[in-house]
C-alpha cells in the first residue's frame, strides 16, 4: 500500500508556476529519495504536500485519506511530519520543550522514553535551549520531535546539510530504524547521494516541477539516469549533486 499519494500536483509562488503536475507514490514503510538539481522544485513539493504553499492544485492523500484543503497543522495531526531546511527547532525553547510541543499537539504522541531509546544523544541536552546546539544536534532534536508526533509519514528536506560526517551516518541510521523497525514511511530530499543511496529503497527524479524518472538505487546508477538528470556519477558522487 502507498503511504502518500500525490496526483497532478501544481504549486505556485506568486506568478511562478513551480510544480507542474507532480505524480508520485511513496510506498508504506520504505524510504523514498527525491533527487533533482537546485531549483527543480523539491522543497516546493514538500511544502505543497504539507499545505504550506500560497496556491496549490491537485490531490494529496495519506493512506487514502485526502489532505486537500486542510491547513498544515491539520495535516500534521493526521500523521504527516515535515522537517524543513529553514526551521529545524524552536530556538528559544529547551530541547525538552521542543519535544513537548509535539507531544501536546498530536492526539497520540509517542512516549519520551521510546524516543530517547532511539535518539539517546539528546538526553543530556534536554534542559538546554535548542538554538544553542550544533547543527547536527538540532537535526536530532528535529527527528525526536517528529518521532514524538508518532507520524506515519515523514518528509525530510536536506537533513544532513551543514552537519559533520559522523552525524550524517547517525542520521542515516535513525532514518533506517524509523522506516524498517517502526514502519514510518519517509520521503527524503538529500543532496548527499551517498546517504540517499544507502538508505533509500526507491529514488525518483524531479526536473522543472515534474517527476521525470526513477527506480531503485541500482537501476538509476546502471541506466544512466543519475548522470543524465543530475550530471553526476555515483562513484565519488558524495556531496556533489
Amino acid at each position: 500500500m502507498d503511504a502518500l499519494t500525490i496526483e497532478k500536483l501544481h504549486g505556485w509562488y506568486g506568478k511562478s508556476h513551480i510544480l507542474q503536475g507532480v505524480d508520485l507514490a511513496v510506498p508504506a514503510g520504505q524510504v523514498t529519495g527525491l533527487l533533482g538539481r537546485n531549483g527543480a522544485g523539491k522543497t516546493t513539493l514538500l511544502k505543497a504536500v504539507m499545505g504550506q504553499l500560497p496556491r496549490i492544485e491537485g490531490k494529496v492523500a495519506l493512506y487514502g485519506q485526502s489532505l486537500d484543503g486542510r491547513p498544515a497543522d491539520a495535516r500534521a495531526r493526521a500523521g504527516i511530519a515535515y522537517m524543513s531546511q529553514e526551521h529545524r527547532v524552536f530556538p528559544e525553547l529547551s530541547v525538552a520543550e521542543n519535544i513537548k510541543v509535539a507531544a501536546a499537539a498530536v492526539p497520540d504522541p509517542r512516549p519520551l522514553d521510546e524516543v530517547l531509546a532511539l535518539i539517546g544523544e539528546i538526553r543530556d541536552h534536554l534542559r538546554r535551549p535548542a538554538g544553542r546546539l550544533s547543527g547536527g544536534q538540532q537535526q536530532l532534536v528535529a527527528l525526536a520531535r517528529c518521532m514524538t508526533m508518532n507520524v506515519r509519514m515523514l518528509m525530510m528536506d536536506e537533513p544532513t546539510e551543514g552537519v559533520m560526517p559522523q552525524m550524517v551516518d547517525r542520521i542515516g541510521e535513525i532514518i533506517r530504524a524509523l522506516a524498517h523497525e517502526r514502519g514510518v514511511s519517509v520521503l527524503l530530499v538529500e543532496q548527499n547521494l551517498g546517504l540517499s543511496f544507502s538508505v533509500c529503497t526507491d529514488l525518483c527524479f524531479l526536473e522543472k516541477g515534474r517527476i521525470v524518472g526513477g527506480g531503485t538505487p541500482a537501476t538509476v546508477s546502471a541506466d544512466g539516469s543519475l548522470e543524465r538528470i543530475l550530471g553526476v556519477r555515483m562513484r565519488g558522487a558524495k556531496n556533489a549533486a
Binding site: 504550506q52 491547513p71 529545524r88
Partner: peptide
C-alpha cells in the same frame, strides 16, 4: 500550560509549529 507552550513556540517558527500540529488558528 499546553497553550502557553504553543504561544511561546509559534512566534519563534510559525511554519514549524504548524508542521508540528500546533492548532495555529
Amino acid at each position: 500550560t499546553k497553550y502557553g507552550l504553543f504561544m511561546r513556540a509559534v512566534p519563534q517558527a510559525r511554519a514549524l509549529a504548524a508542521a508540528t500540529g500546533v492548532p495555529i488558528a
